[in-house]
Amino acid sequence: MSEYNPHEIRRLVDGELPWLRVQEIMRSPKDANRLLVWIEIQQERVDWNERILLPLTPALFIVESGARRVVKCRCGFEFGDDYRVNWKLEALIYVHEDRESLDRIYRGIDQPDPDWIQLREYSCPGCGTQLEVEAVPRGCPPDFEFLPDLDTFYRDWLGTPLPDTRTFEDKTLSEIARWEV
């Protein structure tokens, strides 16, 4: 296992390390405490105090918020009450589905066929960060890109169990089932 000064990991995360040094880090055995340093870096860069359990994207984190585990944006916006429901259900969505709206991104011979594909943008209602983009045909449910098994991770892989447990299950369809059509 390698060990790195947390300052160097900060520089790595921010893309400030020389490429040759990055390659050395890639070649070397990984540092065992990376997750802790990573979370520490993220935690000090947000204005809220809830404990980050796992960064999901540059903007989204699973956090411990009281008795809840929720997906929270770096701006503070919370997406629902349970990280096991796809956070996209609480996002703003804008769909490019005709040539005129696609023109904003793709023009001329670079434009996909809107009869075949939708370009979906998911944004944070709090800060307007574009969180994910999907290019899928109509009918495709939104991707639930990553549902972590947090309890197994913290208990079995890290050896630091979380204070309470959740079943590892996708609860998105349960949430949808409650929606009025």
Binding site: Y106, Q111, E134
Partner: peptide, 21 residues
């Protein structure tokens, strides 16, 4: 060629379609 990849990782836009001439 008709569609683009579903690779909007963390809010990026995917590559344009493949169109030869």
């Amino acid at each position: 060629s008709k569609i683009i990849p579903n690779h909007g990782m963390f809010g990026a836009y995917p590559t344009p379609p493949d169109r030869p001439s």
